[in-house]
Every structure is written in structure tokens, then in C-alpha cells.
Design a protein around this nucleic acid. Structure first.
Length: 296
DNA sequence: TACCAGGATGTTG
DNA sequence: CAACATCATGGT
């Protein structure tokens, strides 16, 4: 019998909308969703756990399919999932602003209870930002999938495959001969290697960045070649949920606003600044909700 | 077919 | 300092 435990969720937590977000690509290999349950591998204390996350009786539950639990490991698993699914944020203040906001009122109505689903793994967050630069999301997911399939740890269990994102050490060693065949551009290969090296040699750590102010953390990220404004804000938003992280130049954001306001063109930078000036520390959440509104 | 993708960098004027 | 080319390839 598998061990099952619960994690507390914020009021209005909307697991269905989480699943919609998580299922946005059918090329996602870091987790799989079947019958409204998320299954994935997670490394805790150098051991790989296989987990199932689902919502039952108004409670978020975790089933350990494989791996031996201790109190400490269970608490680390809970912490990871709380971080990933943003279970410690109360969205009431966001909704208070958003329901009076002409850009946001519609989306917060539709997606109420959707948390800012993040990327707790720093290597993964930075790599995904680099992979996602300039190319369409479908292609970006193909590249991510190839990186994971070829260089991540694969765990087979009872006819199911699970994957871990490749480690910083692994990615740091990849060169053109490895990734060009998988259709990564020369630039992306270089940027991935530089960022992964910085993480592998502890120049950059999640704990270290977490202690810095928004400006200082961003400065450290942008110092890496290949990480510009957008990528740094994306990482600060998805891995750190920094209140000030706001990728205002993001084309997805522009498209979402165009759609939301029924404009015949994308908003200008001045219009964007005007529209978002009241979002304050909820800018990242506003961005996430607007991205979410682009899903079919 | 041209143009755009959840950009960043290097070069040019 | 702003404008432009380049990257690589899938989607439309």
C-alpha cells in the first residue's frame, strides 16, 4: 500500500485550472497527467521519488508510488509541491485589484483560484527561458523534450517512464556536437552551457539569488550571456515569484492584452505601462493569468 | 510565401 | 544610442 499524505491549499485553490495549465503541451516530459492526477519524479536527498498528486475531497494529496519516506523527506516533498503550485500565496489582494482592472477583470473571473505555477528547479527555469527565446512554444517544447530524453535521468517503473531534468553539470558539458543534431541553435547551446556552468560551480545558487533584492538578483542573471531582460524576469517570476518580476516586453503578454481588449493591434510600450501601472507587486500574477488566457 | 514565435547579441550608421 | 541583421526552425 502506497503512502498518501495531504498538503494544505489556499482558499479558492483551483486544481482543475492547474491541470489545464500543466496540460498546455503534449510534449511535456517532466510530469504526466492521467485521470486528473499528476505523476512525476522528484529527487530528494539524492533519491528519486515517484509521486502522484491529485485533489480529492477538497484536499491536495500526494501518493508516493516509489521511494521510502521519512518525516524529513515528506516535508521536503511538501515544500517542493507548495513551491511548484504556489500554495502559500493568498490571492485575495490580487483579485481586489484585478476585478477593477479593465485588462484583468475578465481573466481573474474565469481563472479564479489559479496559482502562479512555477519552476522550482533553477537550472530548469533558466534553461527553459533560454530555450523559449524567440521561437514558438511548440518548437520550444520539442527542444526541451529532447534535452530531457537524452540527458535527463530516466526512471522506468511498472511500464511507466519518469524523467528528471538534466543536472547543471550535465548541461554544462554539452556542446554543439551534442545539441545541434537536436536542432538547438548555436546561440542556445552556448547560453545553456554558460548558465549551467555558473550553477554547477556555485557562482549562482537558488539560495543565493533568493536572498538578493530584485535589482541585484536580476543584475546577477543578466550578467550571464544569453540572459536578457525577459529571461531574467521570467526566472525571477517562475523560480522565485519575485513581486517585481514583470516581463513587460513579452509577446505573449501583448497578444493576450490585444485579445482581452479586442484591439486590432498589439499595445504599444506606453500603453502597456499605462495599463499595468496599478498592478504593482501583482504584475507577475497578471502576466501569468494573461498567458493562461491564450490557452485554447 | 512571408512573417511571426513567451529574445539576445553583435554590428552598423 | 537606435536601427538592423542574425540565429534556426515550426507554425500559420
Amino acid at each position: 500500500m502506497n503512502k498518501i499524505f495531504s498538503i494544505s491549499t489556499p482558499p479558492d485553490f483551483n486544481f482543475k485550472e492547474c491541470l489545464r495549465f500543466l496540460q498546455r503541451s503534449n510534449q511535456e516530459y517532466l510530469f504526466f497527467i492521467e485521470k486528473d492526477k499528476i505523476r512525476f519524479a522528484l529527487e530528494i536527498e539524492n533519491r528519486v521519488f515517484l509521486l502522484l498528486v491529485f485533489f480529492q475531497n477538497q484536499t491536495l494529496k500526494v501518493e508516493v508510488i516509489k521511494g521510502r519516506l521519512t518525516a524529513k523527506r515528506q516535508s521536503e516533498i511538501s515544500e517542493y509541491i507548495s513551491d511548484w503550485l504556489d500554495l502559500n500565496t493568498d490571492l485575495e489582494a490580487f483579485y481586489a485589484i484585478a476585478k477593477e482592472d479593465k485588462v484583468l477583470k475578465n481573466v481573474v473571473g474565469k481563472f479564479k483560484g489559479l496559482p502562479l505555477i512555477g519552476i522550482p528547479n533553477l537550472v530548469e527555469a533558466i534553461s527553459w527561458a533560454i530555450i523559449g527565446q524567440q521561437i514558438n512554444l511548440t518548437f520550444a517544447y520539442s527542444l526541451k523534450k529532447r534535452l530531457i530524453e537524452n540527458y535527463g535521468q530516466t526512471i522506468n517503473y511498472k511500464n511507466q517512464s519518469f524523467y528528471l531534468f538534466p543536472t547543471a553539470i550535465t548541461i554544462a558539458q554539452l556542446g554543439e556536437e551534442d545539441l545541434r543534431p537536436h536542432q538547438f541553435s548555436r546561440s542556445k547551446i552556448k547560453y545553456l552551457s554558460i548558465a549551467a556552468s555558473a550553477i554547477a560551480n556555485k557562482e549562482i545558487t537558488k539560495e543565493g539569488l533568493a536572498q538578493l533584492s530584485y535589482e541585484n538578483a536580476k543584475e546577477k542573471l543578466v550578467a550571464l550571456k544569453g540572459i536578457g531582460n525577459w529571461s531574467a524576469d521570467y526566472v525571477l517570476m517562475k523560480c522565485f515569484r519575485h513581486a517585481d518580476a514583470f516581463p513587460i516586453a513579452d509577446v505573449g503578454l501583448h497578444n493576450a492584452i490585444k485579445k482581452e481588449l479586442n484591439l486590432d493591434r498589439k499595445p504599444s510600450m506606453e500603453e502597456l505601462q499605462e495599463m499595468s501601472k496599478n498592478w504593482g507587486k501583482w504584475s507577475a500574477y497578471a502576466t501569468f493569468y494573461l498567458w493562461h488566457s491564450l490557452l485554447p
